[in-house]
Amino acid sequence: MTERSGKCLCGAIRYTLKGAPRAITACHCSHCQKQSGSVFSLNLVMRDTDFEVTGETRVFVDTGDSGDPVMRHFCGTCGAPIYATIAAAPGKIVLKAGTLDDLAGLRPQTEIYTEHAVAWLEPIAGTKRYPRHI
């Protein structure tokens, strides 16, 4: 995989991905819906060693299904969500795909928390669906 880059809406936070995603997932959980302001969030699960960020993010500490903290990083200037780190998944980051400069070639492999999916949204062709997380 070639490097990919991305940024927040105002450009204060920039990042580079140095490796391939471990997974590409459409998450329908209520927290991703609220954070994204949409009906799901397209996320790339990356090794934290393959992610380099510049600029200082602000962090909202959320609680995941496991009861463990989820640190949601966002731009303090424009408010764009960038990535999350999950205490239950050390060494990984969950990147908001909409912040990438180019989404070419990226397609979700799974849909999670489909029990929260809106009724009118058809399953994404070719994905495996899970009512909760994997």
Rank of each mutant, 00 (worst) to 15 (best):
G64A: 11
F40C: 09
T127A: 12
V59Q: 05
Q109C: 05
T49H: 12
T2E: 15
T25L: 12
T99G: 02
E52V: 14
A84P: 01
C32K: 00
T25F: 01
A87M: 08
A125L: 13
V45Q: 07
D101M: 06
D65R: 03
T2M: 15
P123A: 11
M71A: 10
R14K: 13
T57S: 10
K7G: 12
R72P: 00
V59C: 09
G76L: 10
D65H: 06
A97W: 01
G105L: 12
L121K: 14
V59M: 09
V118G: 12
P108V: 10
V59H: 01
T54S: 15
P131V: 07
E52D: 14
L95F: 00
A88C: 12
H28L: 10
T114P: 07
I112W: 06
V94H: 00
E52I: 11
T99E: 02
G55H: 05
D68N: 15
I82G: 03
R14N: 13
G76S: 13
C78T: 06
G11I: 06
V61A: 09
W120G: 03
G19L: 01
V118C: 11
Y15I: 03
R4C: 03
T110H: 12
I134T: 10
A87K: 11
I124A: 07
R58V: 13
Y15C: 10
A88V: 13
L9T: 02
I13S: 02
G76N: 11
E3H: 10
D48E: 15
R14G: 08
V39Q: 03
R72F: 04
C32S: 04
L17C: 09
V61W: 00
Y130R: 04
G37K: 08
C75K: 01
E115L: 14
A12S: 12
D65E: 13
G55I: 07
T49A: 11
M46P: 02
M71C: 01
C32I: 03
L100M: 05
A20D: 14
G76C: 11
G37R: 08
S30E: 15
P123N: 09
G91Q: 07
V39P: 04
T49D: 12
D101E: 13
G37V: 09
A23P: 00
K128L: 14
D50Y: 04
R129M: 13
C78M: 07
L100T: 02
Q33W: 04
Y83C: 03
A26H: 10
G19S: 05
G126F: 03
A119P: 09
T77M: 06
A117F: 01
D48W: 08
E52G: 11
C10E: 09
